[in-house]
Design a binder for these strands. Structure first.
Lengths: 142, 142
DNA sequence: GTGCGTGCAAACGGTTTGCATGCCC
DNA sequence: GGGCATGCAAACCGTTTGCACGCAC
């Protein structure tokens, strides 16, 4: 998805919610689109500040939550009480492996797993809205 | 695993950590062993209170965290900021499907998925310590 | 008897919110 | 010009922690 498409997706989202396109919201979207990491709100906030954009922490939280609601951003919960966000169109769908020793985050993807979990949900009379699949791992000692 | 075995596992854990077996810790273990749900600390706390056991919220938090460390209990993070705990030997390993409409929690298990994720970790030079696999679902409309 | 455990309440930390002012539409 | 958005700081809420007293070993 091009940056232009994302912007219009964001504009549609705002319209749907009766919200306005402010320069703060734009700065936040820009920052997220041009970043591939898995970042906390505070990191996004700090980078915006470093870039000379004046946006408050509160606005980052508020905006990121809109972006999540409209599927532009994905929220990760790694079990340490701090939410991470990643840009959803930076690449295809994937899940995460987290190294408990280094904190490194490795992305993975398995069509097989996706199919099986769809099947399991269906067998139970459900359809999947979203899923979390995280492997907490450590390096294999040689 | 029988209740007796769990108790001795707990006693070993306490010994390893140089901790004492107090009546509060016992009450909490009892309550968890005889319960199959996915409960928050506060629910455990309330039930203990209802059962006439005097245990403080702080002690519930402290004990549950020991139980988790020693694999007697499993911690679930459902993304709402409140941790749930389930007794690990109530049944075999499983993951969770959460209905976003009712909050109902359905357990599921797939050997296939377990194998694939082990393989993926291994291919990346890691071994899995634990994993989280949650499907957020909604009922299929007929 | 000693030192960890407990209960209480206060602290913590990420996130949310109320309010007065500012700015998009 | 009207009303939502912003920024600030305070509130929030689940969880953790410091401290003084109590109990297991």
């Amino acid at each position: 998805m091009t940056d232009k498409k994302v912007l219009s997706k964001f504009q549609n989202a705002l319209k749907k919610e009766n919200l306005k396109l402010t320069k703060q919201r734009l700065s936040i979207l820009d920052n997220i689109v041009s970043n591939t990491g898995h970042r906390e709100c505070d990191e996004i906030y700090d980078q915006l500040k470093a870039d000379g954009k004046n946006v408050s922490r509160a606005t980052v939280y508020r905006t990121v939550s809109i972006l999540e609601k409209y599927g532009i951003v994905r929220k990760l919960e790694l079990g340490d009480g701090r939410a991470r966000y990643e840009y959803k169109y930076g690449q295809g769908h994937h899940d995460h492996m987290i190294c408990v020793e280094t904190g490194e985050i490795i992305e993975f993807m398995s069509d097989e797993i996706e199919e099986i979990q769809d099947k399991i949900a269906k067998e139970n009379g459900f359809e999947i809205i979203k899923h979390i699949h995280q492997l907490f791992v450590k390096p294999i000692k040689k």
